[in-house]
Computed example of a mutant assay.
Amino acid sequence: MSSSSLSSIDLHRIFHKLDRNGDGLVSLGELNWLLERVGVQYSLDELESLVGNTTLDFNEFLVFYESISTEKKGESEVEEEEVKEEEEEEDVGDLAKAFRVFDLNGDGFITCDELQSVLSRLGMWEENGGGDCRSMIKVYDTNSDGVLDFEEFKNMMLLSTI
């Protein structure tokens, strides 16, 4: 598993946010809604062939998450290194796309307001008990300017989960 993987607590929280009707199952539509918001595009048919069902319970959701987050392994050390380099390039590209999602005004920095706005849209920020986004930024703000540049954002995403 990569260093950017989510904890089981985070996955449990995400699962329950997706399970809007509280039936203990996440539909492919609900799962696709989340995937689209993080920049992953699947048709419902593709998603059903990946998942093998039209709904997922929490354990199936964990298996699906593991299957899409597990690093590929090459057959030899050379292939493994090439795959790792390609994945790192893809990760940086994916992180750049994610950074642009959070950088709402396109100025190259993520402010507290931008972070809170995007997390709210994703259903991952609770106004009453969500915590302080300034303290979230401060942990990774290495130059103490109160905002996250791309390198700081990359460190945040690779070293933790929001």
Rank of each mutant, 00 (worst) to 15 (best):
S5W: 04
S5Y: 03
I9E: 07
I9S: 14
D10Y: 07
L11C: 04
L11E: 00
K17A: 10
K17Q: 12
D19R: 03
D23R: 09
G24Q: 07
S27Q: 04
L28T: 01
E30H: 05
E30A: 06
W33D: 13
E36Y: 08
R37K: 11
Q41N: 15
S43R: 13
S43D: 11
E46P: 08
L47T: 08
L47C: 10
L47R: 05
N53M: 12
V63Y: 09
F64P: 00
S67C: 08
K73F: 10
S76Y: 01
E77F: 12
E79N: 04
V83T: 12
D94F: 10
D94P: 02
L95E: 05
A96D: 06
K97P: 07
A98F: 04
R100F: 02
D103L: 01
D103P: 01
G106D: 01
G106C: 00
G108T: 05
I110P: 00
T111A: 09
C112R: 03
C112V: 11
C112S: 13
D113L: 10
E114M: 01
E114A: 01
L119F: 11
L119E: 01
R121T: 09
R121H: 15
L122A: 05
G123V: 00
M124N: 11
M124P: 02
W125C: 11
W125E: 06
W125V: 04
W125G: 02
G130S: 13
G131M: 09
S135G: 13
M136K: 12
Y140T: 12
T142G: 05
D145H: 07
V147P: 00
V147Y: 06
L148R: 00
E152Y: 00
M156Y: 01
L158P: 00
T161A: 07
T161E: 03
